[in-house]
Design a protein around this nucleic acid. Structure first.
Lengths: 250, 250
DNA sequence: GCAGTAATCTGATCCAGATCATGGAATGAA
DNA sequence: TTCATTCCATGATCTGGATCAGATTACTGC
């Protein structure tokens, strides 16, 4: 067997309080749905946000807790999941800086429906639900951007439903790898590297299978020469072949 | 075996052009996200909508077609679905009057991602994408309502993903029956009647199983005395038992 | 380095549900 | 009424992937 290289994913041990005040403006400027605002307006808004740091494994929100805030990820990776009575988690989304979650609508229940767990060190900006809605009221263009983002997430969720209903585990895993690579991939000498510590367990939670099945499929893809993997990382060397597998007739 | 009663679901053969101009204002007034507008404002907006009638089986939109309009259901039932290479459709949602779909975001591709098919006679109001966005810009309160609706649909989609990933066919069918009953159920002498022609095929598309499995589970529920069914209709007589099944430990 | 730990791989078995096949019952058309 | 069509029920078989059980291997802390 080929000698495997060392992990190309560096786990950054960012300080959880990286989210210093000096960086907040820069972060808010970077958030896509504030793109339409002037610098002065963002400074204004800035005062309504609070920053919070989290360590890997920490819960940003926990399903069932009272929901009064919206979170914007400033730094790090967060998984959004639902728990199962049997203890098996289902990952619904993997959030990256600039994305938000949490108490958004007024109509929804006053508790979080989903758990958000830090995968890395995370810095998040939080804002009270009412304050955020006030911003949306004041700046319709921001509301429009937020609507676009939620709509895109709805489409993505529909995609997942389609996959779960009609495709094999192998196809779902291939499709998921491509989606992840598109979202957070990074060119690397070994291939398109999925720049997030991602275990087989997590891949299984994300694709609706078991860790064993995920491992078997990943092994097969590796034997086929389509990917290179190690502990907690995966790099795609032949995305085209994966695409073909994902879209294969069942 | 017990003699079953005739179908309690009347298939209304509404004229497709029911959607007469005189009714449009009433319909627009009834749509939840225009609730915040004055009568005069709705009259103004009214001019930008066009009405279209459809027969059962007709496609309102077809996945892949150029998307330039948003649809609001005024009358009838519409299923939102994605096609599979193998011909097996996956139903993503079942829309009732007041709900919308179609070209919403500016950022999305210019083609419809999903097919919308009439289950009954349908009357829909359509509006050009840009015109709708202009309305959102002009009336932030409307945008907020729309955002709430899309957010609620995202939550519902997450629920479906959770179910598909972690629950048995029996549990998903029980949960789906309850959801449908909550959305479009109607009290009836035989129980809480799901007031939509719903075949085993469609129930299967909606729950990610096969018609055979749907039929078997429905038969079992009937033997248990939890539901009463016939051709194209189902009435819940013991929602509590269904709830318990749906939430059972796996 | 080296040992310990946690992630990963792989084999063996089992089962929920898909698939294939067929008979029966409700509805609609002539 | 009678036929034809469509929908529904149900039996028999098969299989993808879950589950159970270890064996390996990559990384971590000392």
């Amino acid at each position: 067997m080929l000698k495997r290289r060392k992990t190309p994913v560096e786990i950054k041990h960012t300080e959880p309080h990286l989210c210093s005040t000096e960086l907040r403006l820069r972060i808010l400027h970077g958030v896509s749905f504030f793109a339409s605002l002037e610098h002065a307006q963002i400074e204004e808004i800035n005062h309504q946000f609070h920053e919070k740091g989290f360590e890997p494994g920490d819960y940003l929100t926990f399903a069932g807790d009272p929901a009064d805030s919206l979170f914007i990820i400033a730094e790090g990776r967060v998984k959004l999941l639902r728990h199962t009575t049997a203890g098996k988690d289902v990952m619904l989304d993997l959030l990256i800086p600039g994305e938000f979650f949490g108490g958004l609508s007024t109509s929804s229940d006053s508790t979080y429906l989903e758990t958000a767990q830090a995968l890395t060190s995370v810095c998040a900006l939080t804002i009270r639900r009412e304050a955020f809605r006030a911003i949306l009221n004041q700046y319709p263009a921001v509301g429009m951007q937020v609507l676009d983002l939620v709509t895109a997430r709805l489409e993505a969720a529909h995609d997942t439903i389609h996959q779960l209903s009609a495709q094999t585990a192998e196809q779902r895993i291939a499709a998921t790898l491509l989606t992840l690579a598109a979202k957070l991939g990074e060119s690397h000498e070994v291939g398109l590297l999925i720049q997030t510590p991602l275990s087989r367990d997590e891949l299984a939670e994300l694709t609706g299978t078991t860790p064993e099945t995920a491992s078997r499929v990943i092994s097969q893809f590796q034997r086929d020469g389509w990917i290179v993997t190690g502990r907690q990382w995966i790099a795609l060397t032949d995305p085209k072949a994966l695409r073909q597998t994902a879209e294969m007739e069942t």
